[in-house]
Write a protein that binds this DNA or RNA. Structure first.
Lengths: 342, 342
DNA sequence: TTGAAAGCGTTACCAG
DNA sequence: CTGGTAACGCTTTCAA
């Protein structure tokens, strides 16, 4: 077996196939002018040597790295995973590959990650959210590759945007609860700038409550993101202690809503009999839980697809000017058992 | 503001700082001999130009790309996310950066991803599991960077391994159920080669049942991975139809276990009163669910940490020979309410 | 502590 | 359809 100390290069393949390196380069790319005979020969030579293209060299020369850099706050979050899936699937078949980083809901980590990314010369950058450190924002502004901010509608976007208004989504939920007859409504979570989307939902809650002439002060903190089931349970306990007469609770996510529901059940309170509970994000758990959880579906997957399309559109062309600056998706209310009295 | 058509390079910085490119290169790396005066000057020049290092060029020249390629079956899986977190955190501070790919539990996708990865010249490759297509295996064998197969103990590893025996882990659970007095025990899921780890758990179940002189034939399929809550619910329905007298059910994961539990509840069966249910993986839901779910904690995070350490050990040194070939973690049984009668 | 020259492996560009 | 030459932006290596 051939096991050379150093990996083989194009000129090795060229030598073996009896052609020039340039011809090898062309033969290995689809849609180029090389006779089928020589192409076959080159393929064989490449196979024999176990040749693999060096993308770094290719990128250096062509100034196209094939990277799309993407940051998300957290892996292991069904919503962001869906977005990533949408991105990946839409990008599949193109020459683009995702370079992923997760920020742990920390703008400082985001800044570091973006700095790392930049040195890889990505052809586009997708960042979750519109909140960045000043330095990070400068990084993004300086670059001349397209930037797509997703999952939000920033006041002053860096470049392109694919997202929705978290505040409006929360308002939809408040209205639903109001229509179901609930008046004493609380909001759990969204109490930190580390999760600007959660914060926006809380703001949306407050605004909607005010608009309906209701008291918007039943706000319970849930601590540092990621806010998961446990945090929801703890917040629910706090809520019941402070405002025992609460009729409905909106949670910053389905996970915290589930935690809140289990806490109620442990305390012998029925949901929605004694207390209605709503979530956010259309996670699996919201469908399977007993009771099933009323939630908002934000089309996470579609956000990814649209971001990918924004990138693909006018990447190799110069129709970059024609790419829409902002694309919005529409959050959809899913009414389930947890907020509807029998 | 400086906004040159083409991004600035080291020689641009060098020119502005009045030194050679080589000195810039050194000044920008920590731990090199450059006088503080010139270093400061260079930093300033770099800042002014908004200079970013081109890692592709650096890697081409130094033959060190700084990439560690990692494949996992699925993002949005708390177990693999934990492993990735372990990897990332242990690698932080080193010059290594993760290049992530997810295979969707498909060895053919894995093959494509590995091929893509190879052309990025990673300095190490981490793959989940030991099942690969022949071609993929050849790819991995040809490379002379370290390969780490994780989450499994393959019969014939490509190179290094960090994992545990899924079969043994399943046996631990069977023994627990046996000790609790259950005899008619079923296994849900693990019915496809797309998830070799699930398959191993099923095999471990069968072996353990036989060893105890019990009937190992209560096996219910759960379909194509990822096997989530819904699949668990469907499988439970099938189980109760085929073997209504089942006393305990082991599920391939906590998610399917939760789905199975909710299905029981919908059918008016009490867990564990009428039927005990166990999961796998120590997901959050297993702790929060009512009843809480007995499960196996496989130290997913530690797998990542150990894989990272294996890579770091002897990467820049030549003590690569001293790196242990196989490292195992020990799955731990967590006994909860779902399998213990009151 | 600094600099000059020579690649690293590929592709753009221009010839033929 | 194929080949030669000159970059791409950096680091290695050797000198000073």
């Amino acid at each position: 077996m051939t096991n050379p100390k150093t990996a083989s290069t194009m000129s090795d393949v060229a030598k073996l196939a009896g052609v020039s390196a340039m011809t090898v380069s062309r033969a290995l790319k689809p849609g180029t002018y090389v006779s089928e005979a020589t192409r076959a020969q080159i393929r064989e030579a490449a196979d024999e040597l176990g040749y693999v293209l060096n993308s770094a060299a290719a990128g250096l020369s062509s100034r196209k790295t094939g990277f799309v850099a993407v940051t998300i706050p957290s892996i292991n979050n069904a919503n962001f995973a869906d977005t990533l899936r949408g991105l990946t699937e839409r990008l599949r078949g193109s020459r683009l590959q995702i370079l992923l980083g997760y920020t742990d809901y920390d703008v400082t980590r985001e800044e570091q990650i973006i700095a790392q990314f930049l040195s890889r010369q990505p052809e586009a950058i997708v960042v979750t959210g519109g909140a960045h450190t000043d330095k990070c924002r400068r990084y993004l502004e300086r670059t001349d590759v397209p930037i797509v901010e997703i999952w939000d509608l920033p006041k002053s976007p860096v470049d392109r945007v694919v997202g929705f208004s978290n505040a409006e989504a929360a308002q939809i939920m408040v209205r639903h609860l109001f229509e179901q007859g609930y008046r004493k409504i609380a909001f759990l979570g969204g109490d930190t700038s580390r999760d600007p989307r959660g914060l926006d939902r809380r703001h949306g809650f407050v605004d909607a409550m005010k608009a309906l002439g209701l008291d918007p002060s039943r706000l319970v903190d849930a601590g540092t993101p990621p806010v998961a089931m446990r945090e929801g349970a703890v917040a629910m306990r706090a809520l019941l202690k402070t405002w025992p007469d609460t009729e409905a609770a909106m949670c910053v996510s389905d996970l915290s809503a589930y935690g809140a529901i289990t806490e109620c059940q442990r305390l012998g309170k029925s949901v929605p009999g004694d207390l209605a509970i709503a979530g956010f994000g259309a996670y699996d758990i919201a469908e399977m839980a007993i009771p099933s959880i009323t939630t908002i579906d934000v089309s996470a997957n579609r956000i990814g697809t649209l971001a990918a399309e924004s990138i693909l559109m006018g990447l190799d062309q110069s129709d970059a000017e024609a790419v829409p600056t902002a694309v919005t998706v529409t959050p959809k209310l899913l009414v389930r058992e947890s907020t509807v009295k029998a």
